[in-house]
Amino acid sequence: MDQALDTNSFDVKALRDRIGWTQEQVATYLGVNRSVISRLEAGQPISGPVRRLLAILSAAADKGIADTLLAVRVAEAPESLVTGTLAGAERSEGEAAA
């Protein structure tokens, strides 16, 4: 595991730049909103499952297989996670009022 993950100063932006992912792609991999990635890059402490998933992502980046992780995550994710929509959010206002 990357030793940088043993502290709260892990540089999410540096990892993201190293693998060439957008904040949205990292968010999809982690199963969080893009704003979470922004906060992590601004220095919010990293803990729990996010820390473990970043450790896996960092190791995959070292092996050059990070894109495989994203492809698997997207394939297994519910559509709402991938598209950023909630069930029923695509209905028009007229349908919602009916």
Results as ranks from 00 to 15, higher is better:
S9D: 15
G84P: 07
L57Q: 04
T83M: 06
S38Y: 11
S9F: 08
V36H: 11
F10D: 06
Y29F: 15
E79Q: 11
V50K: 07
D11K: 13
A75C: 05
S47D: 07
D11G: 03
I65W: 01
P78Y: 00
N8E: 12
V50Q: 04
A4V: 00
L57I: 03
Y29C: 02
R16D: 09
A27Y: 08
V72H: 12
D17H: 11
A96Q: 08
A14S: 13
D17T: 12
E90I: 09
Q25D: 10
L40A: 02
A14F: 02
Q44S: 14
R39K: 14
I46W: 05
E79F: 07
L5M: 14
D62V: 06
D67K: 00
P49M: 09
Q23M: 13
E79S: 10
L54H: 07
G94Q: 10
G20V: 11
G43R: 13
T7S: 14
S58H: 04
I56L: 14
P45A: 14
V50W: 00
R91Q: 13
L40Y: 15
A55M: 05
K63H: 08
L54F: 05
S80L: 03
E79R: 12
G43A: 13
S80R: 10
A75T: 10
L86T: 13
A27S: 07
T22P: 05
K13L: 13
S9C: 00
Q23F: 02
R39I: 00
L30Q: 08
A89Q: 15
A60D: 05
Q44T: 15
R73C: 08
I19C: 14
V72F: 07
T7L: 03
G88N: 05
I19W: 07
A59I: 01
A61H: 05
R91E: 12
I37T: 03
G43W: 14
D2K: 03
T83R: 11
Q44K: 15
P78Q: 06
I46K: 03
F10S: 05
G20E: 11
Y29N: 04
D2H: 09
T85H: 11
I56E: 13
I65Y: 07
